[in-house]
Amino acid sequence: MNSATPLLEVEGLRKSFAGVHAVDNMSFSVAHNTITGVIGPNGSGKSTTIDCISGFQRPNAGRIRLDGRDITRLTPQKIAKAGLIRTFQTVHIYEAMTLRENLLQAARPFQASGWVADFLRLPGMRREVDAAMVRADELVDMIGLRKYYDAPTRILSYGQKKLVALAAGLMPKPRLLVLDEPVAGVNPTRIREIEEVILNLHAAGESFIIVEHNVEFVMRLCERVIVFVGGSKMTEGDPKSVQQDARVLEAYLGIPA
């Protein structure tokens, strides 16, 4: 809303598992209409942070605000409905459903018609399905899997499944899409195409947080990069300055400063 309000604001976030601080005193914010990259070594708390932001883990301390609204204690489904959609590091898709069904299902909770309209197949419900179908058609071409549109997603490769998860996340046009390693296992030519697509969506107003190990991917796409080390933010900045930061090289790439 107010452009001075960050789209996402994380403040003093802490999450411990049996005494181990997975995330500690984590603070960062993300502006509207941006692509923010998050990098950091394995175990630096990236996925745990996403879990906390999206309501899948209850933080031990801290505040999370989406567009100024406090979402800290909301359930995952409420946070999703508020416009923050996340994907999972390990592939989560509906394996027994077709690709088309996966995409339509992802749009379903954002459509107005309820159980009665669904049961009676009221016209409003049909219009919603048609609209979702148009979006799904665009997205399936974008991930280049039209050939598998009506095949159960179980038969896809790991990388292809990652792409299905990405497209499903985009279905409801979320305010903020948080991607946990979206291109891990995706083949390199496809990765370049995905970059294209994300840039196009960004130009159309979509905002992203992208957690990725593929540093080139992050550096090419993101205008800001946040570096996590040991459960908190070590630094952040534009891709160039982060890449040249001696501490980042040491912590993340293991190159002594």
Partner: peptide, 8 residues
């Protein structure tokens, strides 16, 4: 989990 992440 996926269903919840999608708002169900």
């Amino acid at each position: 989990d996926l269903a919840r992440s999608q708002g169900v």
